[in-house]
Every structure is written in structure tokens, then in C-alpha cells.
């Protein structure tokens, strides 16, 4: 394992401390490192709290700030945070207008956020994101994973929250954005969990994982390395097959790197994906390219397509000022 770390036991703490110090103008880290919160809160606003396993940076801590989250709870690497973290975060940022949890659809996250909600004794609602089309959706299983589409939900709901929308309205909006967002990912290499010390899975030099999750979970199938155009084509086909709304709405195309993939390749994938959308008559209204929802050092990327409407476009464009995403201010 080759990583810029000291002791594996301190990776998370040292990384969080560095993050908080580098962005001290925007965020504060709780003393026990249970949560990252905005430095200054906005009275009367619904508090948005997300969280999840670490290793997906800048998600979620990097999206704390004006126009997105009020607090984020970092779990251990790839392990959902514990209820005490969400309880402490809610205590710190609840302004009396209620709390909205934004939770990616993993059983660990669901159960820990749910226990926090039961124990916190506050007005809390939850939006669950499950945008990953690589996994079959079914009532009888865990269903689909929440992946990079979560950023889109946090951005749009975050902007709406700044305008003073109430808890129920924000919950509905979050559910709408989630329903109109679909993602799929591929990996060229495995990631390595620091404490595990070796790659989670092993791929041959000529292999890739199609439909991988953001924890290095194996995907739909293992295939021979494919050209970028063919990869984008397969991902876009899978996404559009499950996103009826993209037939009649302009879309956001979000090309997300997993941590080990450079910008040059992400832009090449953007080119490939935009071509695949154009061939199907889908109009791109907004774009985002970068490593925002990562899997430690995994090489690979995901594509997210969100079918936009006017409300969503105006909230997407609204000013945001966080360590990881910033525009308009």
C-alpha cells in the first residue's frame, strides 16, 4: 500500500484536522471530530445534514457551507457514521426549523441515521438517495446504491434551503432530484482501504469493473478493458433506460472521478458521454467534471445524468460557497 499517511489508525483524524485547518474560514470541526459544521449558521433555515463513510472526499464534508449542507458526519473509511455523530451535529446546527438528513442508500447509513433520528428527539426528515443504475432496483432487496447523484441532491436542496423553504418542501424536492438523477460507475483499479492495507479487489491488467460502486464493491460484471467511447456508451444506455424524464428535459451531465483518475481522462470521458447523449437527442444544459464523489485512490469514473426542470436549474445555478464546490460568491 502506497499512501501519504502516518499511522493507519490516524488517517481519518489527521485528514479531518487538515481539512478543517485549510478551510477554517468556512467550516469548523467538532472537538471529538463527530461532525463538520458551517462556521456561521443562518437563523430560521432548515438544517441540512449528511454524512457517510469517509474516503469519498470532498463528499460530504467538502459540501458544508452556504448553499449546501449545514453539517456533515464523517464515518470511518467506508463505514457509516454512528448515531451519536448525527445527534451531536443536529444539536449544533438545528435552528428550530427542523433538520433534513440526506442519506445514501446503504443499510449501514440508513440504520445509523434512523437510530439518530429516534434518539435525537427533534423534527427530522430524511431523503434517501439511490441513483446507481448498476444495481437492480427491487422492493425485496436493499435496492440501488446512492452514489454521485447525492451531490446534485445536496446542491439543489441546499440552494432551496437558503431561500427559506420548509422541511416538507425540501424533503419533496430532494426526492424529486433523486428520482430525476441516475448514475453508473466503472473502475480500472481497486481502491485500498488504509486499515486493510491491500486492494479491496484485484483486476487483471486488461480488465475493468463495469458498474462498480463507490466502495470498490464489485459491479455488474468484469470485462476486458474497453475504449472510453464504448464505456460511455454502455453507461449512458443504462442510465437513459432508467430515466424517462431525460427524453423531454435538458440534463446536467456530471462526470465524476473516483480519486485516482486525472482531469485529462475525465474530460475525455465527458467528450465521450456528451457524444452518446447527443446521438440520442438529449440536450445538455449544465455540466460538472471533477473528482467530487471519490473512492479513495480508485481509478475510474462515474457518469450522472440529472433531468432538469426550471426550478432545478435555478437552484443548481444559485451561489454556493463550500470547500469542494463554489460559484457565484
Amino acid at each position: 500500500m502506497k499512501k501519504l499517511i502516518n499511522d493507519v489508525a490516524n488517517v481519518l483524524a489527521e485528514s479531518l484536522d487538515g481539512f478543517a485547518a485549510a478551510h477554517a474560514d468556512l467550516v469548523q470541526l467538532d472537538e471529538e471530530r463527530k461532525f463538520i459544521r458551517r462556521k456561521s449558521l443562518k437563523g430560521g433555515k432548515v438544517a441540512l445534514i449528511s454524512g457517510g463513510g469517509s474516503g469519498h472526499e470532498p463528499l460530504h464534508g467538502g459540501f458544508v457551507g452556504h448553499g449546501m449542507l449545514d453539517a456533515a458526519c464523517p464515518g470511518q473509511v467506508f463505514t457509516s457514521p454512528t448515531p451519536d455523530q448525527m445527534i451531536a451535529a443536529a444539536e449544533a446546527v438545528d435552528q428550530g426549523a427542523g433538520v433534513l438528513f440526506i442519506v445514501k442508500n446503504y443499510e449501514g447509513d440508513l440504520m445509523n441515521f434512523e437510530m439518530a433520528k429516534e434518539m435525537a428527539g427533534r423534527d427530522i426528515e430524511t431523503v434517501i438517495t439511490n441513483d446507481d443504475v448498476a444495481v437492480e432496483d427491487s422492493l425485496y432487496t436493499t435496492g440501488r446504491r446512492g452514489v454521485a447523484g447525492t451531490l446534485v441532491v445536496e446542491k439543489i436542496v441546499g440552494a432551496a434551503a437558503e431561500t427559506g423553504q420548509d422541511l416538507q418542501t425540501l424533503k419533496s424536492l430532494g426526492e424529486k432530484v433523486n428520482k430525476r438523477s441516475r448514475s453508473m460507475g466503472i473502475a480500472l483499479t481497486s481502491c485500498t482501504v488504509p486499515a486493510a492495507g491491500k486492494p479491496t479487489f484485484s483486476l487483471g491488467d486488461d480488465e475493468m469493473e463495469m458498474g462498480v460502486g463507490i466502495h470498490g464493491e464489485p459491479g455488474r460484471r468484469r470485462v476486458k478493458l474497453m475504449p472510453a467511447d464504448a464505456i460511455a456508451e454502455e453507461m449512458i444506455v443504462a442510465i437513459l433506460a432508467d430515466l424517462e424524464a431525460a427524453k423531454s428535459s435538458p440534463v446536467l451531465l456530471f462526470v465524476n472521478g473516483f480519486g485516482g483518475t486525472p482531469a485529462m481522462e475525465l474530460y475525455l470521458m465527458y467528450h465521450a458521454a456528451a457524444g452518446a447523449l447527443a446521438r440520442r437527442g438529449v440536450k445538455i444544459a449544465r455540466s460538472l467534471v471533477g473528482s467530487y464523489v471519490t473512492s479513495l485512490d480508485m481509478a475510474g469514473c462515474s457518469l450522472t445524468v440529472t433531468a432538469l426542470d426550471e426550478e432545478m436549474i435555478s437552484f443548481w445555478d444559485a451561489p454556493v460557497h463550500t470547500p469542494g464546490l463554489r460559484w457565484g460568491m
Binding site: 464515518g75 457509516s80 457514521p81 449501514g108 440504520m111 445509523n112 437510530m115
Partner: peptide, 14 residues
């Protein structure tokens, strides 16, 4: 266990 394990197993073993 609930407050330290996290993941799916924390709430369940808790």
C-alpha cells in the same frame, strides 16, 4: 457497539 461500530453491523449488533 451502536456508537462505535458504525456500518450495518453496528446498529444490528447494538
Amino acid at each position: 457497539l451502536v456508537m462505535k461500530v458504525g456500518g450495518a453491523s453496528g446498529p444490528l449488533y447494538g
